[in-house]
Simulated scan of single mutants.
Amino acid sequence: MADEYVSATAVSTATNFIMEQETTYTRTYRTYLRLRETGQLDLKFWHSNAVDSTWDVGNTAKGSMSGGEWVIESAYVAVSGHKRDGSIIPGSAIKVTFDGEVSKEVAPAEKFWSDSVHIDLPAGHELVFSWTISAYAGKSFTYNTEGLLVSAFEAEGNKADEEEGALFTSSENRLVLPAFIGYKKQVREEIIFLGDSITQGVRTRKDGYEYWVSRIADGLGPDYGIWNIGSGWARAYDAATDGPWLAKSKQGSIVALVLGVNDIDIGSRSAAELLNDLSIIIRKIKRNPERTGVRVILFTIPPFNFAEEREEVWRTVNEAIRTHPPEGTDVVFDIAEVLSCPAPEEHRIMPKFMSNEFDPHPNGEAGKEVADAFLEWFREQNL
């Protein structure tokens, strides 16, 4: 991203939903984030007022849908205490400004940066990002809806600098964050993980950072930038439209592409359609004139307990990825091999890796297995 800022967290900041209400309101959103480094940090925030990927069948939010008009009334970064209860350490809140102003009117589809902000984040503490948003009736700002992977809170009114947690209530499925939370850092590579809920880490333990992208970030260390833009319900054909979501992936020097589950499932794509969408994505990344020499890691499609026609599509696409991947693919990482049951049940995820007996989303144990395999594999590659 701009001025050598790289993602400060492994938490996904992708959007798959849009706020829609009948009346104007003002509300504060506060999120606790474990950053990849602590100490003296130069932070900067970037936002894209658009939906990245389609939620469900797209009745409310579709990939590349523009956000509406809304206002940032105030924004702050602060230091967490020893509890994630909506409170911050007294005196630690620092204003975030936009072109020197404390407030910012946001236009549909607008992309914008904050000013830089300096904070001393002690080891063992998390960054708390709070912003107060005023939204008009109708559709306004975009966000991510899913079971949350981090602690997030909401409060009515302008409470972005509030130190006590009593006024805040816990959010269950609404993560309202800037699209990019960056810190100034020189890195060897900027790796972007473009995927769905499996990449995002959905169903792993809240505040546990045990999904595989987070574990990979820990294993590689801060010399590698890691930006997670995995998004629940996302599909390859969202990215293939070359909209705001794919534009984010083009910022990386290495792009890891982990898509296909939702294309096969809710998207009902054929093997040919899915392979064509993956080819388009890779071609758009490779031919980006603003960043040349980008390497693409294409993952096989993780097992998701598909059956009948969907199982056949899964098998066909993975065989193609392993033997004749789309043009422009630099290397293939076989995530399915790590997670799958032994043949002939390899289309099924190992039961021990399921988040529960009915849900094939990978759990934290699966996150460790995938991360360990990826790190060993990655260090052998000539990337």
Rank of each mutant, 00 (worst) to 15 (best):
Glu189Gly: 07
Val102Met: 11
Trp314Asp: 13
Val294Met: 12
Asp196Pro: 08
Glu357Gly: 11
Leu149Met: 10
Ser64Gln: 06
Trp70Thr: 12
Tyr183Trp: 15
Pro344Met: 05
Ala152Asp: 07
Phe168Lys: 10
Glu319Tyr: 05
Arg287Ser: 11
Glu163Lys: 02
Ala107Gln: 14
Phe141Leu: 14
Gly367Asp: 11
Ala107Phe: 07
His347Gly: 15
Asp85Gln: 03
Ile18Met: 04
Ile266Glu: 12
Gly91Glu: 13
Ser64Glu: 09
Thr23Leu: 07
Val71His: 04
Val77Cys: 13
Tyr209Ile: 06
Asp196Met: 03
Ser355Ala: 15
Glu357Val: 04
Val255Thr: 10
Glu154Ile: 09
Ala61Lys: 03
Ser197Arg: 01
Ala247Asn: 15
Asp99Pro: 00
Arg34Lys: 12
Arg315Gly: 08
Ala234Gln: 05
Ala336Ile: 02
His47Asn: 15
Glu308His: 08
Arg27Asp: 13
Asp56Lys: 03
Ile89Cys: 07
Pro289Trp: 03
Ala272Gln: 11
Leu259Trp: 00
Asn382Phe: 00
Glu156Val: 11
Glu69Met: 05
Glu22Ile: 05
Gly230Tyr: 00
Ile281Asn: 10
Glu101Ile: 00
Glu73Trp: 00
Val102Glu: 14
Lys104Pro: 05
Tyr136Cys: 10
Arg269Val: 09
Leu278Asp: 10
Gln186Thr: 14
Thr241Tyr: 01
Glu4Leu: 04
Val255Leu: 06
Glu309Leu: 08
Arg287Ile: 03
Val128Glu: 09
Gly68Pro: 05
Gly232Val: 08
Ser253Asp: 15
Pro360Trp: 00
Asn318Phe: 01
Asp218Phe: 04
Arg235Pro: 08
Arg188Ala: 13
Ile72Met: 04
Gly138Ala: 05
Gly252Asp: 12
Glu357Ser: 11
Pro360Phe: 00
Trp55Val: 04
Glu308Gln: 12
Val117Asn: 12
Met354Arg: 06
Leu148Ile: 07
Ala234Ser: 15
Asp218Met: 08
Thr24Leu: 03
Gly165Asp: 11
Gly328Cys: 05
Val296Ile: 15
Gly252Met: 03
Glu365Cys: 01
Glu337Asn: 09
Lys159His: 07
Gly63Pro: 07
Trp46Cys: 05
Val6Gln: 03
Pro122Met: 03
Gly100Ile: 08
Phe306Asp: 12
Glu327Tyr: 01
Thr60Leu: 09
Leu148Ala: 09
Val176Lys: 03
Ser103Asn: 14
Ser66Gly: 14
Gly124Tyr: 02
Tyr76Thr: 07
Ile266Gly: 09
Arg27Thr: 15
Lys248Val: 07
Gln251Asp: 13
Ile266Gln: 09
Glu365Thr: 06
Phe180Leu: 10
Gln200Cys: 09
Ile349Asn: 04
Thr132Lys: 02
Glu190Ala: 12
Thr26Trp: 01
His125Cys: 10
Asn144Gln: 14
Val102Asp: 11
Gln186Tyr: 04
Arg291Ser: 14
Asp218Glu: 15
Lys352Ser: 13
Gly67Trp: 01
Leu257Phe: 02
Cys341Pro: 00
Arg235Ser: 11
Asp223Phe: 02
Pro302Thr: 07
Gln40Pro: 12
Ser64Leu: 02
Glu4Ile: 00
Asn318Leu: 05
Asp330Ser: 14
Pro351Phe: 01
Met65Arg: 01
Tyr211Met: 03
